[in-house]
Simulated scan of single mutants.
Amino acid sequence: MSHFLTAQDRCDRCGGQAYIRARFSQDLELLFCAHHARRYQAALQRQISELHDETHRLTTTPY
């Protein structure tokens, strides 16, 4: 995936800022905030074909 998540990318569950993109084999993708990605992690890992995780941005400090 070449597209990075931005502040305009919103969680499909709550509308918060998305840090996770889960892509499914049917060309479907869902975006999740860190909270909901953790909450649904077990179910997602059984069904996704690709995961793009940018949660490291929550703990890094910009220059």
Rank of each mutant, 00 (worst) to 15 (best):
H52D: 10
A43L: 11
L28G: 08
Q8M: 02
L58S: 01
S49K: 12
T60V: 09
L31F: 11
L28N: 13
I48T: 07
H35P: 02
F4I: 07
R39E: 15
A42T: 11
R46L: 09
L51S: 01
E54M: 03
H52A: 03
T55R: 14
T61I: 13
R21Q: 08
S2M: 13
Y63G: 07
A18T: 04
R13S: 08
F24S: 07
C33P: 07
E29N: 12
L5D: 06
M1P: 05
E54P: 02
G16Q: 13
G16F: 05
T6M: 03
E29A: 10
A7F: 09
D9N: 04
L28V: 14
F32E: 00
R21Y: 05
L5Y: 07
G16C: 02
R21P: 05
S49T: 15
L58M: 05
H36R: 03
G15M: 00
R46M: 06
L44M: 15
Y63W: 10
Q26W: 10
L58C: 00
D27C: 07
L58T: 01
Y40M: 08
Q17A: 04
L44H: 09
G15D: 02
P62K: 05
Y40Q: 09
E29C: 09
D27M: 10
Q41S: 15
L58V: 01
C11V: 01
I48K: 04
L30Q: 13
G16W: 05
G16P: 00
G15P: 03
R46F: 04
L44Y: 12
Q41C: 12
E54R: 03
H56F: 13
R46E: 11
R57F: 05
D27W: 09
F24P: 06
A43S: 13
Q8P: 00
S49R: 14
Y19I: 01
T60K: 10
R46I: 03
P62Q: 08
H35Y: 09
H35T: 10
L30I: 10
Y40I: 01
Q47H: 12
L44T: 05
R57A: 04
T55V: 06
Q41T: 03
Q17R: 14
R46H: 11
R38L: 13
T59K: 10
T60E: 15
C14Q: 02
L5K: 04
E29F: 15
H35C: 07
D53I: 02
G15A: 01
I48R: 08
E54C: 05
R21M: 03
L28S: 11
A34S: 10
L5P: 01
H36P: 08
G15V: 00
A43I: 06
F32M: 01
A42Y: 07
H36C: 12
Q8S: 06
E54H: 05
E54S: 00
I48P: 03
L44C: 08
R46S: 06
Q41K: 14
Q41P: 04
H56I: 08
S49Y: 08
D12F: 03
L30H: 12
L31S: 03
M1N: 12
D27T: 05
R10K: 15
Y19A: 04
S2N: 15
E29H: 13
F24W: 11
C14P: 06
